[in-house]
Protein backbone atom coordinates (compact mmCIF):
# COMPACT_ATOMS: atom_id res chain seq x y z
CA UNK A 1 0.00 0.00 0.00
CA UNK A 2 1.30 3.44 -0.82
CA UNK A 3 2.00 5.91 1.93
CA UNK A 4 -0.90 8.19 0.93
CA UNK A 5 -3.35 5.28 0.78
CA UNK A 6 -2.16 4.23 4.22
CA UNK A 7 -2.73 7.71 5.68
CA UNK A 8 -6.18 7.80 4.11
CA UNK A 9 -7.10 4.51 5.76
CA UNK A 10 -5.66 5.75 9.06
CA UNK A 11 -7.63 8.98 8.81
CA UNK A 12 -10.81 7.09 7.98
CA UNK A 13 -10.28 4.71 10.93
CA UNK A 14 -9.59 7.62 13.27
CA UNK A 15 -12.72 9.45 12.13
CA UNK A 16 -14.81 6.34 12.52
CA UNK A 17 -13.39 5.72 16.01
CA UNK A 18 -14.22 9.28 17.06
CA UNK A 19 -17.74 8.93 15.69
CA UNK A 20 -18.26 5.69 17.55
CA UNK A 21 -16.85 7.24 20.72
CA UNK A 22 -19.16 10.23 20.40
CA UNK A 23 -22.14 7.96 19.85
CA UNK A 24 -21.14 6.05 22.98
CA UNK A 25 -21.21 9.00 25.37
CA UNK A 26 -24.59 7.85 26.58
CA UNK A 27 -25.01 7.19 30.28
CA UNK A 28 -28.29 5.39 29.55
CA UNK A 29 -29.87 7.07 32.57
CA UNK A 30 -33.03 5.35 33.74
CA UNK A 31 -34.82 6.99 36.66
CA UNK A 32 -36.44 4.49 39.00
CA UNK A 33 -39.46 5.54 41.05
CA UNK A 34 -38.74 4.84 44.73
CA UNK A 35 -41.76 6.61 46.26
CA UNK A 36 -44.55 8.98 45.20
CA UNK A 37 -43.10 11.73 42.94
CA UNK A 38 -39.57 10.54 43.79
CA UNK A 39 -37.05 9.15 41.31
CA UNK A 40 -33.50 7.87 41.68
CA UNK A 41 -30.76 7.22 39.12
CA UNK A 42 -28.38 4.65 40.58
CA UNK A 43 -24.73 4.72 39.48
CA UNK A 44 -22.31 1.80 39.29
CA UNK A 45 -20.40 0.68 42.40
CA UNK A 46 -17.05 1.28 40.70
CA UNK A 47 -14.16 3.72 40.55
CA UNK A 48 -14.23 6.51 37.96
CA UNK A 49 -13.17 5.10 34.59
CA UNK A 50 -13.10 5.74 30.84
CA UNK A 51 -15.74 3.03 30.58
CA UNK A 52 -18.31 4.36 33.07
CA UNK A 53 -17.67 8.05 32.33
CA UNK A 54 -17.88 8.85 36.04
CA UNK A 55 -21.39 7.45 36.47
CA UNK A 56 -20.70 5.92 39.87
CA UNK A 57 -22.99 8.25 41.77
CA UNK A 58 -26.68 8.32 42.71
CA UNK A 59 -28.73 11.33 41.73
CA UNK A 60 -32.44 11.89 42.19
CA UNK A 61 -35.37 14.22 41.75
CA UNK A 62 -38.73 15.00 43.29
CA UNK A 63 -41.56 16.06 40.98
CA UNK A 64 -44.05 18.52 42.52
CA UNK A 65 -46.75 20.78 41.11
CA UNK A 66 -44.45 23.72 41.93
CA UNK A 67 -41.60 22.27 39.87
CA UNK A 68 -38.81 19.69 40.11
CA UNK A 69 -36.18 19.50 42.84
CA UNK A 70 -32.96 17.79 41.68
CA UNK A 71 -30.51 16.24 44.13
CA UNK A 72 -26.95 16.23 42.75
CA UNK A 73 -26.11 16.84 39.11
CA UNK A 74 -23.61 14.05 38.35
CA UNK A 75 -19.98 13.84 37.23
CA UNK A 76 -20.02 15.74 33.91
CA UNK A 77 -21.85 18.23 31.76
CA UNK A 78 -23.05 15.34 29.57
CA UNK A 79 -24.48 13.59 32.62
CA UNK A 80 -26.27 16.75 33.70
CA UNK A 81 -27.77 17.22 30.23
CA UNK A 82 -28.88 13.59 30.02
CA UNK A 83 -30.34 13.86 33.54
CA UNK A 84 -32.33 16.90 32.46
CA UNK A 85 -33.66 15.00 29.43
CA UNK A 86 -34.52 12.01 31.63
CA UNK A 87 -36.52 14.32 33.89
CA UNK A 88 -38.28 15.84 30.87
CA UNK A 89 -39.38 12.37 29.76
CA UNK A 90 -41.22 12.00 33.09
CA UNK A 91 -42.63 15.49 33.68
CA UNK A 92 -43.08 18.77 31.88
CA UNK A 93 -42.62 20.71 35.13
CA UNK A 94 -39.53 22.92 35.13
CA UNK A 95 -36.51 22.24 37.33
CA UNK A 96 -36.77 24.90 40.05
CA UNK A 97 -33.97 23.82 42.36
CA UNK A 98 -30.74 21.76 42.04
CA UNK A 99 -29.04 20.86 45.32
CA UNK A 100 -25.39 19.78 45.49
CA UNK A 101 -25.10 17.60 48.61
CA UNK A 102 -21.33 18.27 48.94
CA UNK A 103 -18.35 19.49 46.95
CA UNK A 104 -17.06 16.23 45.44
CA UNK A 105 -16.88 16.22 41.62
CA UNK A 106 -19.44 13.51 40.87
CA UNK A 107 -22.09 15.53 42.73
CA UNK A 108 -21.79 18.93 41.04
CA UNK A 109 -20.01 18.72 37.66
CA UNK A 110 -23.37 18.35 35.87
CA UNK A 111 -24.45 21.81 37.10
CA UNK A 112 -23.89 23.44 33.69
CA UNK A 113 -26.96 21.64 32.36
CA UNK A 114 -29.24 23.62 34.69
CA UNK A 115 -30.19 27.30 35.01
CA UNK A 116 -27.56 28.97 37.24
CA UNK A 117 -30.20 30.54 39.51
CA UNK A 118 -31.61 27.09 40.37
CA UNK A 119 -28.31 25.84 41.83
CA UNK A 120 -27.98 25.78 45.61
CA UNK A 121 -25.75 24.25 48.28
CA UNK A 122 -24.55 24.78 51.84
CA UNK A 123 -22.19 27.79 52.10
CA UNK A 124 -19.13 25.64 52.87
CA UNK A 125 -19.94 23.40 49.90
CA UNK A 126 -20.03 26.45 47.62
CA UNK A 127 -16.70 27.55 49.07
CA UNK A 128 -15.27 24.05 48.51
CA UNK A 129 -16.42 24.01 44.87
CA UNK A 130 -14.71 27.38 44.33
CA UNK A 131 -11.43 26.36 45.97
CA UNK A 132 -11.11 22.70 44.91
CA UNK A 133 -13.52 22.31 41.98
CA UNK A 134 -10.96 23.21 39.30
CA UNK A 135 -8.53 20.52 40.48
CA UNK A 136 -11.34 17.96 40.75
CA UNK A 137 -12.52 18.76 37.23
CA UNK A 138 -9.01 18.36 35.75
CA UNK A 139 -8.66 15.06 37.53
CA UNK A 140 -12.03 13.88 36.18
CA UNK A 141 -10.80 14.55 32.62
CA UNK A 142 -7.83 12.30 33.39
CA UNK A 143 -10.05 9.57 34.85
CA UNK A 144 -13.07 9.65 32.51
CA UNK A 145 -11.64 11.17 29.30
CA UNK A 146 -14.05 12.22 26.54
CA UNK A 147 -17.15 11.90 28.71
CA UNK A 148 -16.02 15.14 30.35
CA UNK A 149 -16.05 17.17 27.10
CA UNK A 150 -17.22 20.72 27.74
CA UNK A 151 -17.44 20.26 31.51
CA UNK A 152 -16.50 23.32 33.54
CA UNK A 153 -16.95 24.18 37.18
CA UNK A 154 -20.21 26.02 37.82
CA UNK A 155 -20.62 26.76 41.52
CA UNK A 156 -24.07 27.48 42.99
CA UNK A 157 -24.54 31.10 44.00
CA UNK A 158 -27.47 30.41 46.34
CA UNK A 159 -26.34 29.48 49.86
CA UNK A 160 -28.81 27.16 51.60
CA UNK A 161 -30.18 27.70 55.07
CA UNK A 162 -30.77 24.37 56.80
CA UNK A 163 -34.30 23.70 58.04
CA UNK A 164 -37.76 23.07 56.61
CA UNK A 165 -38.54 23.69 52.95
CA UNK A 166 -42.04 23.56 51.49
CA UNK A 167 -42.21 22.74 47.80
CA UNK A 168 -45.40 21.94 45.95
CA UNK A 169 -47.00 20.08 48.82
CA UNK A 170 -43.82 18.28 49.89
CA UNK A 171 -42.51 19.06 53.37
CA UNK A 172 -38.76 18.74 53.11
CA UNK A 173 -36.08 19.04 55.77
CA UNK A 174 -32.64 20.27 54.71
CA UNK A 175 -30.18 18.85 57.24
CA UNK A 176 -26.67 20.31 57.45
CA UNK A 177 -24.22 17.62 58.57
CA UNK A 178 -20.52 16.92 58.15
CA UNK A 179 -17.94 14.19 58.33
CA UNK A 180 -17.68 12.89 54.76
CA UNK A 181 -16.65 16.47 53.92
CA UNK A 182 -16.77 19.71 55.90
CA UNK A 183 -20.40 20.22 54.80
CA UNK A 184 -22.74 17.37 53.90
CA UNK A 185 -26.36 18.05 53.06
CA UNK A 186 -29.02 15.42 53.69
CA UNK A 187 -32.54 15.95 52.32
CA UNK A 188 -35.44 14.28 54.13
CA UNK A 189 -38.86 14.39 52.51
CA UNK A 190 -41.31 14.06 55.40
CA UNK A 191 -44.20 13.68 52.94
CA UNK A 192 -42.84 10.47 51.43
CA UNK A 193 -40.32 9.29 54.03
CA UNK A 194 -37.48 9.35 51.49
CA UNK A 195 -34.04 10.30 52.83
CA UNK A 196 -31.37 11.44 50.40
CA UNK A 197 -28.29 10.88 52.54
CA UNK A 198 -25.61 12.03 50.09
CA UNK A 199 -22.17 10.51 50.64
CA UNK A 200 -22.65 10.20 54.37
CA UNK A 201 -24.02 6.78 53.43
CA UNK A 202 -22.42 4.25 51.08
CA UNK A 203 -24.09 0.93 50.29
CA UNK A 204 -22.16 -2.21 49.32
CA UNK A 205 -19.25 0.03 48.33
CA UNK A 206 -16.34 1.15 50.51
CA UNK A 207 -16.66 4.84 51.48
CA UNK A 208 -14.27 7.44 50.13
CA UNK A 209 -12.40 9.58 52.66
CA UNK A 210 -10.43 12.42 51.02
CA UNK A 211 -12.02 15.02 53.33
CA UNK A 212 -13.24 12.72 56.08
CA UNK A 213 -13.55 13.53 59.75
CA UNK A 214 -14.51 10.15 61.16
CA UNK A 215 -15.95 11.20 64.57
CA UNK A 216 -18.09 13.90 62.91
CA UNK A 217 -19.18 11.40 60.25
CA UNK A 218 -20.24 8.88 62.92
CA UNK A 219 -22.26 11.57 64.71
CA UNK A 220 -24.01 12.44 61.43
CA UNK A 221 -24.87 8.77 60.84
CA UNK A 222 -26.40 8.60 64.33
CA UNK A 223 -28.53 11.62 63.50
CA UNK A 224 -29.71 10.15 60.17
CA UNK A 225 -30.57 6.91 61.96
CA UNK A 226 -33.13 8.72 64.15
CA UNK A 227 -35.13 10.26 61.28
CA UNK A 228 -37.54 7.37 60.79
CA UNK A 229 -37.19 7.25 57.00
CA UNK A 230 -38.96 4.68 54.83
CA UNK A 231 -36.58 4.82 51.87
CA UNK A 232 -32.86 5.49 52.12
CA UNK A 233 -31.01 6.81 49.07
CA UNK A 234 -27.26 6.52 49.67
CA UNK A 235 -24.73 8.62 47.74
CA UNK A 236 -23.36 5.43 46.21
CA UNK A 237 -24.92 1.98 45.96
CA UNK A 238 -28.45 0.61 45.80
CA UNK A 239 -31.46 2.28 47.41
CA UNK A 240 -32.52 0.61 50.66
CA UNK A 241 -35.74 0.27 52.65
CA UNK A 242 -33.95 -0.02 55.98
CA UNK A 243 -30.94 1.39 57.85
CA UNK A 244 -28.61 -1.41 56.67
CA UNK A 245 -26.41 0.96 54.62
CA UNK A 246 -26.02 3.26 57.65
CA UNK A 247 -24.83 0.31 59.76
CA UNK A 248 -22.52 -0.79 56.94
CA UNK A 249 -20.95 2.66 56.59
CA UNK A 250 -20.62 2.99 60.37
CA UNK A 251 -18.98 -0.45 60.69
CA UNK A 252 -16.38 0.38 58.04
CA UNK A 253 -15.54 3.77 59.57
CA UNK A 254 -15.28 2.22 63.05
CA UNK A 255 -12.92 -0.47 61.79
CA UNK A 256 -10.86 1.95 59.68
CA UNK A 257 -10.43 4.38 62.58
CA UNK A 258 -9.41 1.63 64.98
CA UNK A 259 -7.10 -0.15 62.55
CA UNK A 260 -5.20 2.97 61.54
CA UNK A 261 -4.91 4.25 65.12
CA UNK A 262 -3.62 0.83 66.23
CA UNK A 263 -1.18 0.66 63.33
CA UNK A 264 0.24 4.07 64.22
CA UNK A 265 0.37 3.23 67.93
CA UNK A 266 2.18 -0.03 67.13
CA UNK A 267 4.84 1.86 65.19
CA UNK A 268 3.95 0.53 61.76
CA UNK A 269 5.43 2.27 58.75
CA UNK A 270 2.84 3.49 56.20
CA UNK A 271 3.84 0.69 53.79
CA UNK A 272 3.09 -1.83 56.56
CA UNK A 273 -0.27 -0.17 57.31
CA UNK A 274 -1.09 -0.50 53.58
CA UNK A 275 -0.41 -4.23 53.74
CA UNK A 276 -2.85 -4.95 56.61
CA UNK A 277 -5.47 -7.63 55.93
CA UNK A 278 -9.05 -6.43 55.59
CA UNK A 279 -11.62 -8.25 57.76
CA UNK A 280 -13.77 -10.76 55.86
CA UNK A 281 -16.99 -8.82 56.52
CA UNK A 282 -15.73 -5.92 54.39
CA UNK A 283 -14.25 -7.89 51.49
CA UNK A 284 -17.63 -8.00 49.74
CA UNK A 285 -17.77 -4.20 49.54
CA UNK A 286 -17.07 -2.97 46.02
CA UNK A 287 -13.61 -1.39 45.43
CA UNK A 288 -12.67 -1.99 49.06
CA UNK A 289 -8.97 -2.70 48.39
CA UNK A 290 -8.52 0.52 46.40
CA UNK A 291 -10.49 2.63 48.88
CA UNK A 292 -8.54 1.20 51.80
CA UNK A 293 -5.26 2.17 50.13
CA UNK A 294 -6.55 5.66 49.41
CA UNK A 295 -7.80 6.02 52.99
CA UNK A 296 -4.40 5.03 54.40
CA UNK A 297 -2.77 7.71 52.26
CA UNK A 298 -5.35 10.30 53.30
CA UNK A 299 -5.75 9.49 57.00
CA UNK A 300 -2.67 7.65 58.30
CA UNK A 301 -0.34 10.68 58.59
CA UNK A 302 -2.67 12.27 61.19
CA UNK A 303 -2.79 9.09 63.32
CA UNK A 304 0.97 8.79 62.95
CA UNK A 305 1.47 12.37 64.07
CA UNK A 306 -0.59 11.71 67.21
CA UNK A 307 1.36 8.55 67.96
CA UNK A 308 4.71 10.32 67.53
CA UNK A 309 3.75 13.34 69.56
CA UNK A 310 3.64 11.14 72.65
CA UNK A 311 6.86 10.98 74.55
CA UNK A 312 8.50 7.61 73.95
CA UNK A 313 6.45 4.84 75.48
CA UNK A 314 7.93 1.33 75.25
CA UNK A 315 5.53 -0.83 73.26
CA UNK A 316 3.90 -4.04 74.38
Amino acid sequence: MSRSARSLVALFTLGWALLLAAADMNYDLRPVRVAADTWVLTGLNEDFSFKNGGNIVNTGFIVTPAGVLVIDSGPSRAYGEQLRRAIARITDKPVVMVLNTHHHPDHFLGNQAFAPDTLAALPETIHGIHSEGGGFNENMYRLAGDWMAGTEVLAPTKPLTPGPLELGGHTLELIALKGHTGADLAIFDRSTGVLFAGDLVFHDRAPTTPHANIPAWQASLDQLDTLGFKVLVPGHGPVSLDAGPIRQTRAWLTWLDKALRQAAEDGLDMTEALALDLPAEFRRLAVVEAEYRRSVGQLFPAYELKALSHSGRPAQ
Binding site: D269, T271, L274, R293, G297
Partner: peptide
Protein backbone atom coordinates in the same frame (compact mmCIF):
# COMPACT_ATOMS: atom_id res chain seq x y z
CA UNK B 1 11.32 -2.07 47.87
CA UNK B 2 7.76 -1.81 49.20
CA UNK B 3 5.54 0.92 47.78
CA UNK B 4 1.92 1.05 46.61
CA UNK B 5 1.46 0.06 42.94
CA UNK B 6 -0.89 3.04 42.65
CA UNK B 7 -0.10 6.12 44.71
CA UNK B 8 -3.04 8.50 44.96
CA UNK B 9 -1.05 11.34 46.45
CA UNK B 10 2.14 12.05 44.49
CA UNK B 11 3.33 14.39 47.28
CA UNK B 12 3.45 11.61 49.85
CA UNK B 13 4.25 8.17 48.44
CA UNK B 14 5.28 5.72 51.16
CA UNK B 15 8.38 3.60 50.43
CA UNK B 16 10.18 1.02 52.58
Amino acid sequence: VSAPLTAENPMNVPVS
